[in-house]
């Protein structure tokens, strides 16, 4: 049965590495930082991780088909602002408001997908435009004075425990879809070789559009969570640098930035690592600048490892 164990270890190598690193970090922090290992602090931490982890799940989908979506934070902010605008200025219902947020974000993702799949535009550029449009939309709607505060029910319902449940549900469902369903498998096929996928009878245009829509939807879920935690929406709630967190979470989680492999589960753990790191650096009083630098170095390093892996694989294959 050692063969089976070997298989399992090999299949879940990334997962085990991630868990090991996170566990190590956790142990060191519980020993050195006061009040780190308390339920309160840990649940707070998970609440902070949730939006990034969910968006990196969406990013994983996009990266797996060999695409790129850097509009996520901007879409998140735009959808949140649209939703809050609806709930406050237009006096809409809170539940409906949450759905407005989700739909807006999904729709923006769909536009990305349409431009990329049907109009054959470059993903980076399309999503870059969407980033400006999203930021513009959020800025216009929130106006100079910002949006009013939401009624307390919204934040009360979406408290940190609900958020953790949402986080787990999203990660589990999206991971399951990616690994265990026909749709998910098709994403891997497209990311590996789009032409073979087409010859095998896979409608890659349609699937590409759905994938970008899912990425948008993930931004929408993150928008709902963020809206609840600040009880309103601001145009600057999705800063550009957040996309770095999102993509690095996925890349650290072993998602190949050039498409074809990766798992939502591992990307979410990548998010735990990245956000956890930021959190710890804040706790230690490290300035924001260094944090960004460290994160930038991490993503470049992770990509270096990714391209080194490709290099190794090519060598082995030949």
């Amino acid at each position: 049965m050692s063969g089976g164990l070997k298989r399992f270890l090999n299949d879940n190598k990334q997962l085990l590495i991630m868990i090991g690193v996170i566990a190590g970090m956790f142990i060191i922090l519980s020993l050195t930082v006061n009040n780190f290992c308390t339920v309160r602090n840990l649940t707070n931490l998970l609440q902070q991780i949730a939006p990034i982890a969910i968006m990196s799940a969406g990013a994983t989908y996009v990266l797996v088909i060999g695409g790129m979506d850097i509009s996520n934070p901007a879409v998140m902010a735009a959808a949140a602002v649209v939703g809050v605008y609806y709930m406050t200025t237009l006096g809409g219902n809170l539940v409906a408001g949450a759905f407005v947020i989700l739909l807006t974000a999904a729709f923006m993702g769909l536009i990305n997908g349409f431009a990329i799949a049907k109009l054959k535009m470059v993903p980076m550029v399309v999503t870059l435009s969407m980033m400006t449009v999203g930021t513009g939309l959020a800025t216009i709607l929130s106006g100079t004075r910002g949006l009013p505060t939401l009624p307390a029910e919204f934040s009360d319902f979406l408290n940190k425990y609900t958020v953790i449940v949402i986080l787990l549900a999203v990660v589990i469902i999206l991971d399951f879809i990616l690994v265990r369903t026909k749709f998910g498998r098709m994403l891997y096929y497209i990311g590996n070789n789009a032409k073979t996928a087409r010859i095998s009878g896979i409608d890659s245009e349609k699937i590409t559009m759905i994938t970008y829509t899912i990425s948008g939807l993930c931004a929408g879920i993150a928008a709902v969570i963020n809206t609840a935690s600040i009880a309103t929406a601001r145009a600057n709630m999705g800063p550009q640098s957040q996309i770095l967190d999102i993509i690095s979470a996925a890349v650290i989680g072993g998602v190949n930035p050039n498409g074809g492999s990766g798992r939502v589960r591992d990307a979410a753990l990548g998010a735990v690592l990245i956000v956890g790191l930021t959190n710890v650096m804040n706790l230690l009083g490290v300035s924001d600048y260094y944090t960004t630098m460290v994160k930038g170095a991490i993503v470049i390093g992770a990509m270096g490892i990714a391209s080194f892996r490709v290099h190794l694989a090519a060598k082995k294959g030949a």
Binding site: M68, I70, M124, Q240, S241, I243, L244, I247, S248, V251, P257, N258, T292, M293, K295, G296, A297, V299, I300, M303, G304, A306, S307, H311
Partner: peptide
């Protein structure tokens, strides 16, 4: 041979 757009994006923030 790293992904050009991602590298430069990371560079931008750093």
């Amino acid at each position: 041979k790293m992904n050009g757009m991602l590298v430069t994006f990371g560079m931008m923030l750093v």
